[in-house]
Computed example of a mutant assay.
Amino acid sequence: MTQTNRFISLDVFRGLIICLMIIVNTPGSHDTIFAPLEHAAWNGFTLADLVFPSFLFAVGNALFFTMQKSKTLSLGQVLAKIGKRTGLLFLLGFLLYWFPFFKTNEAGHVVFKTFAETRVMGVLQRIALCYGIASLLLYYCKPKGAFLVAVGLLIAYQGILFWFGEPGHELSMVGNAVTKLDLWLLGPAHMNHGEEVPFEPEGILSTLPAIANVVAGYLVGWYIQSAGKTKKMLAWLTGSGAALTLLGLCWGIVFPINKNLWTSSFVLYTVGLDCLLLAAIIYIVDFLNITRWTRFFEVFGRNALFIYLLSEVVAILLRASHLYKWIFNHFFSFPGLYTGSLVFAIWFMLMCWLTGLILDKRKIYIRV
C-alpha cells in the first residue's frame, strides 16, 4: 500500500465521519429526526452513536503517523507538542460551549454569560483528553503497553461503575458513578442540561474507556503500515472487526452497550465496526482502485477539525438569531417534517463542504 493511498483511505474515513457528524448534529428540527440519526435514549445503539467513537478511532489512526515524525524530537519537544495540542483542543471545546458569550436575561437585556454557568466537558474536551493520555501511553509504554493499559481500563471501568454506583441503579442516569463524580467535581451548573437531570455524556470518568478507542485506532494504523497492501492485512482487519463487534455484543449482555456511559461493550462494538468500515474503504480505494467518489470525503478529512468547529459555530449563531428555525420552516419543511429535517441537515453539511473545498483548492489545511 503506497503512502499516498493510505492517507487517502484515512482522509476518506475521517471525512465520512465528519460528514455524518454534521448531519446528525444539525437536523432542521430536533423533534423530527429519523431513528438511525438520533442517539439511543440510553441503552442501545444507532448509526448516530457510531460517529463520536469513530472520530476518536480516526484520531488514533492519525496519531500513528504523527508519532513517527516525533522520533527525531527530544523528550521535552514531544511533551510540549502533546501538551500544546491537548490544551488547545480542550480550550476550543470549552470556548465553543461558552460561545457566543452573551445571553438574554429574564428582563430582556443582553448580559455576559459568566463562567459559573458554562459547561466544562464536551466533545472536543474528550477528544483532547483522550488524545493527550493515549499519546503519553504510546510514547512511554509503547504499543504493547498501551494496549494492555487500554484493556485494563475497560475491565476496571465496569468494576468502578458497579462498585461506586447506587445499588440497583448503577447504570441509570441518576445513580451511576459517572454522574456522581461529575456532580462532585464540576457541579450541576457546569454540566450538560439536555436531559431531565444534569447529566454529562462526556463525563470525566467515562473518558477513561474512550481512551481505548484512540489506542485501537493507533494500533490499526500501525498494523496497516507494517503489513502493507496485502490480502492478509485486509483479512486480518476484517476478521478483527467482526470479532470485536461480536465480543462487544456478548459483553453487552452483562454490561449494556451505552454511549452515554461509554461502556466497555460500547468501546469494543464501535472499534469493531470502525475496523470493518475502514477495511471496506481500503478494499474499494486500494484494491479495486475505485477513487472517483473519494474526493468529496477527502475535503472533509483534510480539514476535519476546522470544518467541525465551523459547523458548530454557524449553527450556534443561526439558532441564537432564530434564523435556523426560520430557514427550516420557509425552505425545507415542505417535503414533510422528517424528510425536510434531513434535507436541511444535508444542505447544511454541503455548505460546510463548500468551505472545505475552497480551503483544499488553496492548499490551506488548518491544524492544531
Rank of each mutant, 00 (worst) to 15 (best):
M1E: 12
N5K: 13
F7C: 00
H30P: 03
A35N: 09
H39I: 08
W42A: 02
G44W: 00
L47R: 05
F55S: 02
K69G: 08
K71G: 06
K71T: 13
S74V: 02
L75D: 06
L79P: 09
L89W: 06
L95E: 02
F101T: 03
F102R: 13
E106F: 10
G108S: 02
H109A: 13
H109V: 11
T114C: 01
T114N: 13
E117C: 00
I133M: 06
L138D: 01
Y139H: 05
F147Q: 11
V149Q: 08
Y157H: 10
I160V: 13
P167S: 03
E170T: 08
V174M: 15
A177S: 15
T179K: 15
L183A: 05
L186I: 12
A189G: 03
V197P: 00
T207I: 00
A212E: 09
G217Q: 04
I224P: 05
A242T: 12
G248D: 07
P256V: 10
F266N: 03
Y269A: 07
T270V: 03
T270G: 03
G272A: 05
C275G: 02
V285I: 15
N289F: 09
F300A: 07
A304N: 05
E312D: 12
H322Q: 14
F328Q: 10
L337D: 13
A345C: 04
M349W: 11
L354I: 15
L357Y: 15
R362M: 11
I364Y: 08
V368A: 05
